[in-house]
Amino acid sequence: MDFVKTADVNSYIQREALGGIKIPHSTSQPVIRLEDGKYCLAAFVFFYSREDIRLGEAARPQFWVAADICTGELTGENSCKEKEFSDASYRKKYSIRADGVYDTSREYYEKAFALLDEVRETLIDTGTLERQKYDRYLAKITANIPREYQRFYFELSV
């Protein structure tokens, strides 16, 4: 199997999650998840409305997708009501307001995704998760995520 870089996997997941539905939604950056005893990439999907954006809040994720750790091809789409990854309430909305100044530059994400590429390659080659390097990736990715929504990254991740 050919290794696909995280930046390309991320673009693919964002485009293809839930069949590319046209309802306003957002897809998280990929994380590594242990699913059925195997490592995979995973991302969650949440929906929002114009009113949510105005108020700076959104419902918790309602779906999550799994993708092959090497190729990034989607291997599963899961409704959280059927296969949950979080204990967050569905009855409230979570802040998506920026907590500070975020670095959303291309270079920032290239560096973050390069870290995940290294972790994935080691995982594929040796079966070992480089925890410290992976934690640096998570810290970098979640630094650009509002505090209330960061929990979903950590709950979906290994």
Results as ranks from 00 to 15, higher is better:
5 K>Q: 15
7 A>W: 10
8 D>S: 15
9 V>R: 06
9 V>L: 13
10 N>S: 10
11 S>W: 15
13 I>K: 08
20 G>W: 13
22 K>S: 10
24 P>N: 12
26 S>F: 13
28 S>W: 09
29 Q>C: 07
31 V>C: 09
36 D>Y: 06
36 D>K: 14
37 G>R: 14
37 G>A: 13
41 L>P: 01
47 F>A: 06
58 A>D: 01
59 A>G: 03
59 A>E: 10
61 P>M: 05
61 P>K: 04
63 F>L: 03
63 F>W: 14
65 V>S: 04
67 A>F: 08
67 A>R: 05
67 A>S: 09
68 D>G: 02
69 I>H: 05
71 T>S: 14
76 G>Q: 04
76 G>N: 05
78 N>T: 03
78 N>C: 08
86 S>K: 03
87 D>K: 15
90 Y>E: 06
91 R>P: 00
93 K>N: 11
94 Y>L: 09
95 S>R: 09
96 I>M: 00
97 R>Q: 08
97 R>L: 01
98 A>M: 11
100 G>A: 11
100 G>E: 13
102 Y>W: 08
104 T>Q: 07
107 E>F: 07
108 Y>K: 04
109 Y>C: 06
110 E>N: 13
114 A>W: 03
115 L>M: 12
121 E>A: 14
123 L>M: 11
126 T>C: 05
127 G>D: 12
127 G>W: 12
129 L>A: 07
130 E>L: 08
131 R>Y: 10
131 R>D: 10
133 K>Q: 14
135 D>N: 03
136 R>W: 01
137 Y>E: 03
140 K>A: 09
146 P>C: 07
146 P>L: 02
147 R>W: 05
149 Y>G: 01
150 Q>Y: 06
151 R>T: 12
153 Y>D: 02
155 E>G: 10
155 E>C: 12
156 L>D: 05
157 S>P: 02
157 S>D: 05
158 V>A: 07
